[in-house]
């Protein structure tokens, strides 16, 4: 194992900064660097307003969502020891989707900004239910039971979601734009609403990275090394719910990120979860923002939603990586 990763860290941080700046500059209206810089000092001017009121919130949300999904995905893969696990398996996306379409259908809510709290609530309720179901019964909580309970509950919740979509065309019409996953059209209020959850989740995740390394060896080994397995699993679960729940509330279900980023990172840095979590945190936003910028530019003046763009950019990359090297087992 490599002893230090200073060059890698520097490279990842500079990539992250670069993607933040690029996300501020490019879009349906392309600006120059001078305007981007001026927009933080001068309050007048249309271009400056575009940067300040549209692109800054969008970039910040992209940063948070990318980091949260990637870290949550890495944690899920570690704690379930299943390479196919992603945050969606906890039922987070399905719960948020159902809560939001119920809000649209029953309360007639239509602005993405007001979806946030419904999304958070739905995600939290369904993740709690998944954990309760996965740890109930004889034998207590095992990763397999949690994973299965999550997959089953997600299917159950999405059948209610599709029932509403089929019964009410107006709900479908609004919901389909959220369902795709997008970071456009959110204002600072959305970013402010989810930021505390995301930061708490990320700090918790990084603090847990050492314990996660032990847990990956298996519950028996971890226990024999003196770890309180139940407590670690609960902490990890809490972090995942905070991260994935706030990400889906802010941006909708961006399916692919949580699964793919940890795999890509693992290919580069090896199996040490201290590194995997750190580089997922740095790499997630890079991939999300890059995909978002590509989505803004390819069919200008229209936009490709980031949920579509991440998959169209990320899936071939993921397939090529899976083909060329033996992907590390979790």
């Amino acid at each position: 194992m490599r002893s230090t990763g200073v060059p890698w860290t520097v490279a990842a941080v500079s990539l992250l900064l670069a993607s933040l700046l690029v996300s501020l500059r490019y879009g349906s209206v392309s600006l120059d660097w001078a305007t981007v810089i001026r927009s933080f000092t001068e309050l007048s001017g249309t271009d400056e307003q575009i940067v300040r009121e549209l692109r800054v919130p969008r970039t910040l949300i992209g940063l948070g969502v990318g980091a949260s999904l990637a870290v949550a995905g890495a944690l899920m893969q570690a704690v379930t020891r299943n390479p196919l696990a992603d945050p969606g398996i906890l039922g987070v996306n399905a719960g948020a989707s159902l809560a939001i379409i119920v809000a649209i259908f029953v309360l007639g809510i239509s602005a993405p900004t007001s979806y946030v709290w419904f999304g958070l609530a739905g995600a939290a309720v369904s993740a709690t239910a998944v954990y309760a179901l996965g740890s109930g019964g004889r034998g207590g909580m095992t990763p397999t039971k949690v994973t299965l309970a999550g997959a089953v509950l997600a299917a159950l919740l999405s059948s209610f979601t599709s029932a509403i979509m089929l019964l009410d065309e107006r709900s479908l019409d609004q919901f389909r734009f959220w369902m795709v996953g997008s970071i456009a059209g959110r204002d600072m209020a959305v970013a402010a609403a989810v930021a505390p959850f995301m930061v708490t989740g990320l700090v918790l995740a990084l603090a847990m990275s050492r314990s996660v390394n032990v847990l990956v060896l298996g519950a028996e080994v971890a226990r024999s090394l003196g770890q309180n397995v139940t407590r670690v699993r609960l902490a990890v679960a809490g972090a995942v719910v905070l991260l994935a729940g706030s990400a889906v509330a802010a941006a909708g279900p961006i399916a692919f990120m949580g699964l793919a980023v940890p795999h890509i990172v693992r290919l580069i840095v090896g199996p040490d979860y201290r590194k995997i979590l750190l580089y997922s945190l740095l790499g997630g936003p890079v991939i999300l923002l890059a995909a978002d910028v590509v989505g803004r530019l390819v069919i200008r003046p229209a936009e490709l939603q980031v949920g579509i763009a991440t998959a169209i950019v990320g899936a071939p990359l993921f397939i090529v990586l899976a083909r060329r090297r033996q992907l590390g087992r979790v």
């Binding site: 390479p83 196919l84 399916a255 699964l259 795999h263 579509i308 990320g314 899936a315």
Partner: peptide, 22 residues
Amino acid sequence: RMVLIGIGTDAFCRAGISLFLV
């Protein structure tokens, strides 16, 4: 490896479906 590549393909197709739906 096949399952991983299957997931990649699945995500790609889903993106296409979302595109047509939107």
